[in-house]
Design a protein around this nucleic acid. Structure first.
Lengths: 219, 219
DNA sequence: GGCCCTGTCATCCGATCGGCTGACCCCCGG
DNA sequence: CCGGGGGTCAGCCGATCGGATGACAGGGCC
């Protein structure tokens, strides 16, 4: 597609770790990135836990992260832990299917360097990876548009953590399981829930989920 | 009625048309399939309309179809028209992210030869493509399991009263208020709730609301 | 250097939920 | 005529939720 003659701007290639729970998508990305000059895939992970372990071992420049991970911790939590890690943490480039406001803000607050849609052209992906490797933020055009166009879409201003809680809530988890999923105590979960109820104008979890789905605060 | 011209398994490669609205995924699949022996990608489409036009022009053996297409007609409708087309119609292999019962049945009814999840291993994909080229059906293991387990058994068929309860539930009402709203006793509400949980595969009201909203079981 | 917001954690307690078991009525279809 | 599905109701009990209140650390803002 692009000329292979275009060399990487820097001597060393950008070292990438790919994290996506879909094996086919992962394999496709690997094949695609192999064709890109100046980009080298050094590992692949199918779960958040795997990504954390591999990142610690491989120290990649950039982690390409899908927000929707089937089992275990989700992409946001993985991103949070990746970027919060002591020492040289990788830049996380979120590559996902959806562009809901909640997702973008949660990802950015968790420390993501960029947010790309899978609908993007491959060239955009390559460019974003090279940007991310240097810590320069990158947003997909439609996403950037939304962000510019105002948090107008964000009628309810939930904090990042509150949205995390809400996401787990919508999976039907109890407080204990939410706590485990996010590595916090049940007491903290309850505190967040209380604030969420206040902000959404409800007084129980069923109502919160209903409002969240209605306002499209969730994926 | 589907396969007038059988492709030679070994002599000629299987000719593929890839249809997915995500450019990155499409490019990834292209790169991945290029590495597979006996498989040749002859075209790619980003919308259902494109797929129909290209299929008519290129006459591929297999169309790799994503069910979720952003703009225009969806994957199911595209599949329907592809397989209903006069003359030699391609075999459609659905490759999608989700495995809800509704999707599978809709796709199969529309004439899909196979249904694969993107979470599948690449080798499974290659094998499925070669199967599909000869009209042999292919289902992802998890999908096949569901189908065996009794398609209609898992079908979400709520009774009228159950939907009434669900609607109130989504308003965040407690059992007492639901009872009052529907002029029945709390005991009856609880009975309905338990059946709803069973049918939706959840075990609490938050999960029920989430599933209901997801499956569009509510107004 | 204070102050607010966010995120974290804790305890107490009443209210509610969810699981379990069993029951009755009505209507439809075999 | 009897079986079964849908709708109704009841009691018991442990688990969980939600309300109230208080506390502390870190980041950002003035």
């Amino acid at each position: 597609m692009t000329r292979p003659a275009a060399p990487a701007p820097d001597g060393a290639p950008v070292r990438i770790l790919v994290c996506d729970d879909h094996a086919v998508v992962r394999a496709g990305l690997l094949a695609l990135l192999d064709s890109a000059p100046g980009i080298e895939v050094v590992g692949e992970a199918g779960t958040g836990e795997e990504a954390l372990a591999l990142s610690a071992k491989l120290a990649p420049d950039v982690v390409l992260m899908d927000l929707q991970l089937g089992e275990g911790i989700d992409g946001v939590e993985t991103t949070r832990r990746l970027t919060a890690a002591p020492g040289a943490s990788p830049h996380v480039l979120v590559l996902t299917t959806y562009d809901t406001d909640a997702d973008v803000t949660r990802a950015v607050e968790a420390g993501a360097t960029g947010y790309l849609l899978k609908a993007e052209r491959p060239e955009e992906l390559f460019a974003a990876i090279r940007s991310a490797a240097q810590g320069r933020p990158a947003l997909s055009a439609p996403v950037a548009g939304r962000v510019m166009a105002g948090l107008r879409g964000l009628r309810v201003s939930l904090t990042g953590r509150e949205r995390d809680i809400l996401a787990q809530l919508a999976r039907g988890l109890g407080n204990r399981d939410i706590a485990r999923a996010l590595f916090i105590s049940e007491a903290t979960v309850k505190t967040h829930l209380r604030r969420i109820y206040d902000k959404l104008g409800v007084d129980n979890r069923a109502g919160a989920v209903a409002v969240a789905k209605e306002q499209r605060l969730l994926p």
